[in-house]
Design a protein around this nucleic acid. Structure first.
Length: 503
RNA sequence: GGCGCUGUGGCCGAGUGGCUAGGCAGAGCUCUGCAAAAGCUCGUACAGCGGUUCGAAUCCGCUCGGCGCCUCCA
């Protein structure tokens, strides 16, 4: 039996505002689209949180046995800087400032984005389409919307007719808005003379003279509107109807609302069945954002070279920190919280590393009750993950397994009564969840350096053993204390063995 | 102004009406030559005020905070 039948998944669907049983449109297969980054600057930690949230979704679906097609786009054109329609293209502006080709800007930050994803151990999507690579699809999409009567052309630009659309189907169902309210409340913007209505949004914009990123279209030279690429590319790669659409909470309106309207205006199909939104990372209670000046890059995080950071934190520490809260809750960044996460993460991983040192399970009189109880912990982990990807709850249970492992190591007799098959199954999932679902990995020195270090440590440990054996505590303590000074902790174990960990 | 979220012990954070996660910090104990690690035990928190209920952190109302979106934003 596949795991997804054993641990049926439920998800909070923001389209229906309810937690629902997850049922893919096609048995055993999942199509998921997630809004990716706009590549005109470095990603900051807040961006990382959203992508991490959906990395968990992707990983867990896969772990449950679903075959997942995960599409995450790269927005490399089209978003304007100003709040009116005449603003400059962000990428073009960056290109002008840095004296680069727009596509050089795009490439630079796309590379940077990939590096960051790798650093935090996020899996690459199945397809990573770019907006500039799908201009034709977007033009075709617009043409269909126009022919359906939901868009109009004005002087080389095309706008989506929200009011007309709203006569046939509700606009605002995802974000809980209604058109009448918005028409009376939306503030006046300048430079929107072309639009019939303030709520209308651009599907295609005529390129002003000097605009760098532009393409030919039936309406003249221009570029696609802000929301169109996701509609066009999700349809192309996942179909008119697919399972999951994800993105940051801040994209809910207007971006995702526009996406739904575009989809329905084009084909009558709304796209995704389940809409999932990741919440924001905050700093002192405020959203981390470039405009707030409270964002920092992953590099600053690692080095601690930022005024908000007391010191540097590793990528896995940060990943673990993010997983300790639920993706739909805001998460507040602080040095204290990071330090707590760091210790917790190390404790968890230490127990994972201890598993291989354990003696065999089930070597004594097997106690079925205790065995079942042990198994129950990992079942709870999977049940919690199936409850809307609740990593926070799951981690609590993982720590329980962790404690058991530590106890088994100290008291092998407790392990002797645990059924071997049950133990192996539990440990398989314990390791699987930590590495495959949560994406946590050991942060150790790699390569040749690691071998050398290991060899050096073996020598020092042997020296300390001899010193202890001859009751030369002054020397044995000096070895331990001096190593502690340079960040290596020696631990004496039962039976005279010693182990070490690197801080 | 509209839509929505939120207020949990020293800190961070889960919480499906009753059995009241977990991590970090703190206290005690065990183990230990001394440590460290680990294990065990402890703190009995849910912004305030009402209400529903046998029973509410959890549901309802009001009050007071905080935040997000409504303009590009993960």
């Amino acid at each position: 039996m596949s795991l997804y039948k054993q641990y049926p998944l439920s998800v909070q669907n923001n389209l229906t505002k309810q937690k629902e049983q997850f049922e893919p449109l096609s048995e055993g297969k999942v199509g998921m689209y997630v809004c990716g980054p706009t590549v005109y600057s470095d990603v900051h930690l807040g961006n990382v949180r959203t992508f991490s949230s959906f990395d968990i979704v992707y990983r867990y679906l896969t772990y449950l046995g679903y075959k997942v097609r995960y599409v995450r786009n790269i927005t490399d054109v089209g978003h304007l800087v100003g709040d009116a329609d005449e603003g400059e293209d962000k990428i073009a502006k960056k290109a002008r400032l840095d004296q680069l080709e727009p596509m050089e800007v795009v490439q630079k930050y796309t590379n940077g984005f990939h590096d960051v994803m790798q650093l935090f151990n996020l899996l690459p999507p199945s397809i990573e389409p770019t907006a500039t690579g799908h201009i034709i699809e977007q033009i075709e999409f617009i043409q269909k919307i126009i022919s359906n009567g939901y868009a109009y052309e004005v002087d080389g630009s095309v706008y989506f007719d929200v009011k007309k659309y709203n006569e046939d189907q509700p606009y605002g169902e995802l974000s809980g808005r209604n058109v009448e309210d918005m028409m009376s409340n939306t503030r006046e913007l300048t430079g929107q003379d072309q639009k019939k209505n303030q709520l209308d949004f651009a599907l295609w914009k005529k390129a002003q003279s000097g605009h760098l990123m532009k393409w030919s279209s039936p309406w003249g030279e221009g570029f696609p509107g802000w929301h169109l690429e996701c509609s066009a590319m999700s349809t192309k790669y996942l179909g008119l109807d697919f399972d999951i659409h994800g993105g940051g909470m801040d994209l809910k309106f207007p971006h995702h609302e526009a996406e739904i309207a575009q989809n329905k205006g084009c084909s009558g199909h709304g796209g995704a069945k389940y809409w999932i939104h990741g919440n924001m990372l905050t700093v002192n209670g405020r959203k981390m954002a470039k405009s707030e000046g409270n964002g920092f890059t992953p590099e600053e995080l690692l080095t601690g070279n930022h005024k908000l950071l007391d010191r540097g934190y590793s990528a896995m520490t940060v990943r673990f920190f993010m997983l300790m809260s639920h993706y739909a809750s805001t998460l507040d960044f602080s040095n204290e919280a990071l330090q707590a996460a760091e210790k917790g993460y190390k404790r968890l991983m230490a127990s994972v590393n201890l598993i291989e040192k354990l003696p065999a399970a089930g070597s004594g009189n097997v106690d079925q009750t205790k065995s079942a109880e042990f198994k129950g912990i990992i079942e709870k982990v999977l049940t919690d993950l199936s409850d809307d990807f609740n990593t926070a709850k799951a981690i609590a249970s993982l720590f329980e397994v962790s404690s058991r492992i530590n106890s088994f190591y100290q008291n092998p007799s407790d392990l002797a009564v645990i059924d071997k098959a049950i133990f192996d199954e539990t440990i398989k999932h314990f390791r699987g969840v930590i590495s495959d679902v949560l994406g946590l990995r050991n942060e150790v020195v790699g390569g040749q350096d690691a071998e050398v270090l290991g060899g050096v440590m073996d020598v020092l440990i042997e020296l300390r053993k001899q010193a202890k054996f001859s009751k030369n505590y002054a020397l044995s303590d000096k070895i331990r204390d001096d190593l502690k000074e340079v960040g290596v902790q020696i631990k004496d174990e039962k039976g005279g063995e010693m182990s070490y960990s690197i801080d």
